[in-house]
Design a protein around this nucleic acid. Structure first.
Lengths: 338, 338
DNA sequence: ACTCGTCTTTGAATCGTTTCATTTGTTACG
DNA sequence: CGTAACAAATGAAACGATTCAAAGACGAGT
């Protein structure tokens, strides 16, 4: 009893054939009441637990779905992950979460791993250009759904939020409240960030005399935000932007920390600040943070749904679902116009 | 090429035996340069990817470590998880994260799942009483390390932080700054929370005239905190505590949101507030939040180390590592004494 | 030419399931 | 009594990798 019992041990113990034990487990109706009881008793006595590896090997597929996110510590992704997990559980699958940390090699590592595991499908919020890998995965029967990034619908499905629109909403709001010299903080090498920047630039171009400078941050974390904030504080007051749009809330909170630590800069009077994602912590910030809200639960749930559709269609039909983000106004961008 | 190639396909294509292909993969030194090249070429051409299920089946063990946490959305756990992942990767293993959501049945579900997967070992921050399950797991060769909870060292290993001490530090700090009527917010049905409460009560008992009331919250989230906060706001001012100690930062941030929304209660003048965990967001709260810092990276890393020790010793030697928490004072408990 | 040792390669056996064609058992009916 | 119809149980084959005893190749030494 020290080592794990196999189905064969159970069969011997219950004095039936291995096939019968398997039937008890998978097709209870095919087995008579009497032997079913005997087998179940043996299973309990031996403490038998199915070996998933053997089962998968035979089935040729696992009950597992891979999810690769940019940062699990980011509440946006943990919320998406949670929604995906719940939706998958309802379908009898399990979600494995891999954290790429915005590193293309870690991303590739997880893709390899998930492929070795023969996952049912892959949800990915990509760092690098993974188009080719996705093509080969599809050819090998592993459907993929892009998360938080629009996909070409003749390649694969995707769930995303209109980042261009979100960027536009954010910048437009800053402009509407009277600010003209804007700054954008983020890492435009990430596509979503680039789209948000595009939207912001569009809003700026609609208003005569408005400008936007781009401050590249080292990552998308609170720490990276603090660095950018420190750089802003060191500038001569006249050189500082009137409003800052950060490509996510973590960055914005970091910037806020730096700006408020020095008492000379006031939010929103001197510099208005808006983030992106509307994480739970935005509302409880030093200065409650305006943000762009994304429907994370819907993203996670829909991603699983699209994956199921892909599987049913054998990977031939793709669909791109795009959600619309929403502006949430709080104190950090309170009016300077009136 | 549409379906996945097996090692046999590679062998045929490269005109060698399956064993040779396996050797190329696992013991490259045993294979001559010439055939190695030929095999690798075939692997590339066929796009062969190892089937992990088959490999595991043969090996009898997976390269996977299961981690069950109370809440992945909680930065404390996502930080621990991340550290564990990094440490495991260095050892060539992968960490699967399961979120019990403080629900014993979900916890049991993940334990079943991980057992079916034949994980190398299990790291768990338990909800219910899992002592018996851990015993049977150990008997079956699955070492377990308790995370964030002290274990009986003749049952299994554990990494934890001294919660009683942390609770004492927090309450003592509130008392040192002149507060006497304290409140504790949390769910004492969770052991860690109960220990923090014990420590707080010990501190209170040392000071004549000091009291502490217990407010049971519905969970450990920002939302649950907001509910408790609302209840406090509705009390007559004289009935309100002078200081509130929340069993984690999320709760504290929720309480803070409720209290500051209504302008009549001021933090820290009217009510001082301290949390637990010192998550990244504590510093950027409306009123920067005092907290108790736990060494999350050390917890995650050490958990993996202990698991490795368990494996080496064949699950016979257990060790309990206890870290000491640290008080972090910020504005939310600024002095009312002087 | 023969033997010995070393290096390579081979291929059958194995892991624990599921599947499915067959066999065995039981009941009903002519 | 024979047999058709159905239900239940059987056990060998398959999934794809790893392992390992055995066979093969090759050169050196005598």
């Amino acid at each position: 009893m020290s080592q794990t019992a196999s189905i064969k041990d159970v069969a011997t113990h219950a004095q039936v054939a291995v096939g019968t034990v398997s039937n008890v487990l998978n097709y209870p109706d095919r087995v008579s009441q009497r032997t079913k009881e005997r087998v179940l008793k043996s299973i309990a006595e031996l403490g038998f637990v199915r070996n998933d590896a053997a089962r998968q090997l035979r089935a040729g597929q696992s009950r597992t779905i891979g999810l690769i996110v940019l940062d699990v510590g980011n509440p946006f992704f943990s919320s998406v992950a949670r929604a995906a997990e719940d939706a998958a559980t309802a379908l009898g699958s399990v979600v494995l979460v891999g954290d790429s940390g915005q590193d293309a090699s870690r991303e590739a590592h997880y893709m390899d791993l998930f492929q070795e595991q023969r996952v049912q499908g892959l949800l990915i919020s990509p760092v690098g250009d993974v188009g080719d890998r996705i093509d080969t995965l599809r050819d090998r029967g592993v459907p993929t759904v892009l998360v938080d990034q629009l996909a070409d619908t003749d390649r694969c499905s995707s769930v995303s939020v209109d980042d261009e629109e979100g960027g536009y909403l954010a910048a437009r709001h800053l402009l509407d409240t009277g600010r003209r010299r804007l700054a954008f903080v983020g890492t435009p090498s990430i596509r979503q960030v680039a789209n948000r920047l595009n939207g912001a630039q569009r809003a700026v171009s609609e208003i005569a005399g408005a400008t936007i400078e781009v401050l590249d941050s080292a990552g998308q974390t609170v720490l990276a935000g603090r660095q950018v904030g420190n750089a802003l504080v060191e500038r001569a007051p006249a050189e500082r932007p009137e409003a800052v749009f950060c490509s996510n809330d973590l960055l914005a909170l970091g910037v806020m920390q730096s700006l408020t630590m020095l008492r000379t800069v006031k939010i929103p009077e001197d510099i208005a600040l808006i983030g992106y994602d509307d994480i739970d912590f935005a509302v409880s910030a030093v200065v409650p943070l305006s943000s762009i809200r994304q429907p994370t639960e819907a993203l996670g749930r829909t991603a699983i749904e699209l994956l199921a559709e892909e599987q049913e269609s054998g990977g031939t039909k793709h669909r791109a679902v795009v959600f619309t983000p929403e502006l949430v106004v709080r104190q950090s961008t309170a009016g300077a116009d009136s």
